[in-house]
């Protein structure tokens, strides 16, 4: 997250966006429809809803977007939403941070603002995935 401070405008945008997400998950979610969603409804109509097994985490304190131990239903859901938004932000940020750090080795890729959506050849790696990552990481200090 430290990289976020590089541009003040982005920080402001992210803080504002997070605030909106917290309000949506923490407060507005209490007014969401509780009807079954499209897939559930179809499963019910076509008679295969019963096939669903209980979720492995069905007895977790966060199961079904309700923090156990909080009596007020709306509050329990709101707190669960805030927790979920926080985890999603941190996990998403960390994963992308890792991805960027693993791959951003070569010079001259700092600013490539126009997104060519064409296949920009990443060099001799091809679809090597993790293997090329390791190779790139190993080769970088030498270069």
């Amino acid at each position: 997250m430290t990289a976020g401070g590089a541009r003040r405008g982005n920080t402001r945008f992210v803080v504002a966006g997070l605030f909106v997400a917290f309000v949506l998950a923490g407060f507005v979610s209490g007014y969401a429809s509780s009807h079954p969603d499209g897939l559930e409804k179809v499963a019910e109509e076509k008679g295969f809803l019963g096939q669903a097994d209980d979720h492995a985490f069905a007895n977790w304190p966060l199961a079904d977007y309700a923090v156990s131990g909080i009596g007020n239903e709306r509050l329990a859901g709101g707190v669960a939403g805030v927790i979920g938004v926080s985890i999603a932000f941190v996990v998403g940020g960390l994963l992308v941070f890792g991805a960027v750090r693993l791959r951003s080795r070569g010079p001259g890729r700092a600013s490539a603002p126009t997104g060519d959506r064409g296949p920009d050849d990443p060099g001799p790696g091809g679809p090597g995935g993790v293997g090329t990552d390791a190779a790139g990481a190993g080769a970088a200090p030498a270069a």
Partner: peptide, 25 residues
Amino acid sequence: GDEASDQVVPLAGLCAAFVFAAQML
């Protein structure tokens, strides 16, 4: 990783956070 820079890290996190919130609605 090929095309993104450090700047997008918080934006990607925000994106996940926002979609998580919106999926509750």
